[in-house]
Structures are given as structure tokens and as C-alpha cells.
């Protein structure tokens, strides 16, 4: 049985354990052995995105050591996987095992579709759902076609959600507008960030969604913060929770 090294981003480990558990369930049900390297912490993206390369470098090096030995590396986050696949070159180019690491590291939905070949999911999810395309999964990992490009449409998360019985995916006015989380951007540009989040929520509400989902919990954390403050009825769920059949 091939072994997946489970990469759980730090904030999911600390704040959203259910997302991690749902990921484990999905991978095990798809027939993989799941190992969780206990010493993992953070991929270094916050430091790298702030320009602090000296602070990010040791975390990239740790990552290679911790995850280099698995058949696959899977994370329930497009953003953190994009860090490894698209931005680790700066720190690890030429290191033994790095090219292999990049080739075997996957975002969860991408892994379920492209590697595990998941073609059916047995449970029902009778809800109206809006899929928020998290930007790094979309435009770095190309998990779906971005609306700017003139090319055939596809979407891996969407493909999986459509396997659920009873689900209704709503049509958003802006298919892939950013939610405004953006890491430190969320606090450095607080006003713009919150307006972006509110507009994104509004788009989901107008489309009639009961639940907003995404590949990245960080986007959802930001928007859930706005939703809870404004006491709105829209719910957020990470896509792993929905696919694993966890209750709303």
C-alpha cells in the first residue's frame, strides 16, 4: 500500500483539527496508508511572502527532510502546496530529493482526482454550495481553469463535489475573485481585505448558497470571521469535511 506523508498546515493543526481528520479519512478510504510526521510545523510561506527569506529557508529545509521519504505528500491546502511546488526552488534547487519532492506533493483534491482516481462518493450532501476558488490553488497549481484565460474549463474540486448525491453548486457572479485573506495582507491592508471578503460573501449569499467551501481553510477563516461578526447565516466548510461526509 503506498504511503502518503500527511502535510497539515500549522493553522489547520492548531485551529481546524476536523479538516485534518477529514483528510486522513479521505486518503485512507482511497486506499492509502497515511503517516503524519510529528515534527512538522509550518512550510514557511508567511515568512517567504513577507520577503523574509532567511527566516523561510530553514523551514523549507526541514520540510524536505521530513517529507522526502514518502511515496506521496498530500495537504488539504492549495496555498501551502503551491509554496512547496512553486516557491521552494529558491531555497532547495539542486538538493538531492527536491525535484522528486515537488513531483509527489499534491493538494488534496488534485490527489484524489489525478492520483487516486476517485470516481464515486457514496454519501449525500443535500445542500446549496458555493465553491470559492482559492487563488494559489487556482493560479499556481492550476486546480481549475482561471476565468482570465481562454482555454477549456475544468475544476478538480468541482468535479469531486459533483459526485455527492443531492448537492447543488450555485453559480457565482464572479467565479474566481480573491477573498482578500492574503496572509499578512489580511492585517496590513485590513480595510481592503475585509471589503474583499464581504464582497465574496455577498456573492455567495446572492447566489443562494447555504454553505461556502474552498480548498483552503485560510480563506474560509477570514470570511468566517466576517460572517460570525455580522451574524450571517452562511456556513463555511472545508472541502475535505464535505467530501468525507462530516456533518454541517
Amino acid at each position: 500500500m503506498p504511503t502518503v506523508g500527511l502535510f497539515i498546515p500549522c493553522y489547520i493543526d492548531q485551529l481546524y483539527p476536523r479538516v485534518g481528520l477529514a483528510t486522513v479519512d479521505l486518503l485512507e478510504r482511497a486506499g492509502f496508508r497515511v503517516e503524519y510526521p510529528e515534527d512538522q510545523t509550518c512550510c514557511g510561506q508567511p515568512m517567504a511572502n513577507t520577503g523574509c527569506t532567511a527566516e523561510a529557508r530553514p523551514l523549507a529545509e526541514r520540510f524536505l527532510t521530513l517529507f522526502g521519504g514518502f511515496d506521496y505528500v498530500v495537504a488539504p491546502s492549495g496555498s501551502c502546496v503551491a509554496m512547496v511546488r512553486c516557491h521552494y526552488d529558491e531555497y532547495l534547487a539542486g538538493r538531492p530529493g527536491f525535484d522528486e519532492l515537488k513531483a509527489k506533493t499534491f493538494e488534496l483534491c488534485e490527489f484524489l482526482v489525478d492520483v487516486a482516481g476517485v470516481a464515486q462518493i457514496s454519501h449525500r450532501f443535500p445542500h446549496r454550495v458555493g465553491l470559492h476558488q482559492s487563488c494559489h490553488g487556482l493560479r499556481e497549481l492550476r486546480l481549475a481553469q482561471s476565468s482570465e484565460l481562454v482555454a477549456p474549463a475544468y475544476g478538480k474540486a468541482q468535479q469531486l463535489l459533483q459526485l455527492l448525491d443531492g448537492i447543488e453548486l450555485v453559480t457565482l457572479a464572479r467565479p474566481d475573485e480573491c477573498c482578500g485573506f492574503g496572509g499578512t495582507f489580511a492585517v496590513a491592508e485590513e480595510a481592503v481585505s475585509c471589503m474583499m471578503g464581504e464582497d465574496r460573501i455577498h456573492d455567495h449569499e446572492t447566489a443562494g448558497a447555504e454553505i461556502m467551501t474552498a480548498n483552503d481553510m485560510s480563506c474560509l477563516m477570514h470570511m468566517a470571521g466576517l460572517i460570525r461578526r455580522q451574524k450571517k447565516s452562511l456556513r463555511v466548510m472545508h472541502i475535505a469535511e464535505i467530501l468525507a461526509g462530516y456533518p454541517v
Binding site: D13, P17, V19, G20, E38, C194, G197, A224, L226
Partner: peptide, 24 residues
């Protein structure tokens, strides 16, 4: 806390993912 000006913080769970996975 600029995060909290217009947003709530997430609800903090009692146990982290790794603790829950280990327990499970």
C-alpha cells in the same frame, strides 16, 4: 489587533489535530 476590527477570531479547539489524531 487589526484582524479583530471587523472579524472574529476562529473558535479555538481544545485539542489540536495532532492530539486528536494520536487519540484516535
Amino acid at each position: 489587533n487589526p484582524w479583530g476590527r471587523q472579524r472574529e477570531l476562529p473558535e479555538f479547539p481544545r485539542q489540536s489535530f495532532r492530539e486528536q489524531l494520536a487519540a484516535r
